[in-house]
């Protein structure tokens, strides 16, 4: 088995899981910067703002690694197309601009 063949799948899965993590707030952990405390999963603000980006990042990395591991046995006979690894992230980037359009249209 060649783990490198799963890299296009990893890139695509990472981007797709990340956008869902942001939109659905699937944060693996939350950081509270004012009181410098960490909490598991998505937590509401304790004191000051709560930061979920670190948690979204961890969710995406673990999720994409899991998807790549599941796909690994299939890559013996099947080579995932390389475009998966850049077309899907590019689409996700465009969707993010659309989702964040409110900042620019006020």
């Amino acid at each position: 088995m060649n783990i490198e063949r799963t890299f296009p799948i990893f890139a695509a899965a990472f981007a797709v899981i990340y956008i869902f993590a942001v939109e659905q707030n699937w944060a693996l952990f939350t950081y509270h910067p004012r009181i410098r405390e960490w909490g598991w999963l998505m937590e509401p603000a304790r004191s000051g703002p709560a930061m979920h980006w670190y948690g979204w990042l961890a969710t995406s990395a673990l999720g994409a690694a899991a998807v790549s591991l599941v796909a690994l046995p299939f890559t013996r006979r099947w080579t995932p197309p390389l475009w998966l690894g850049w077309v899907i992230p590019l689409i996700v980037m465009v969707v993010f601009v659309y989702l964040l359009r409110g900042f620019f249209l006020r």
Binding site: E4, F7, P8, F10, A11, A13, F14, A15, Y18, L57, S60, A61, A64, L82, G85, W86, P89, V92, M93, F96
Partner: peptide
């Protein structure tokens, strides 16, 4: 998103 593309 770019971070996920680094292995590729």
């Amino acid at each position: 998103v770019g971070l996920g593309m680094l292995p590729l």
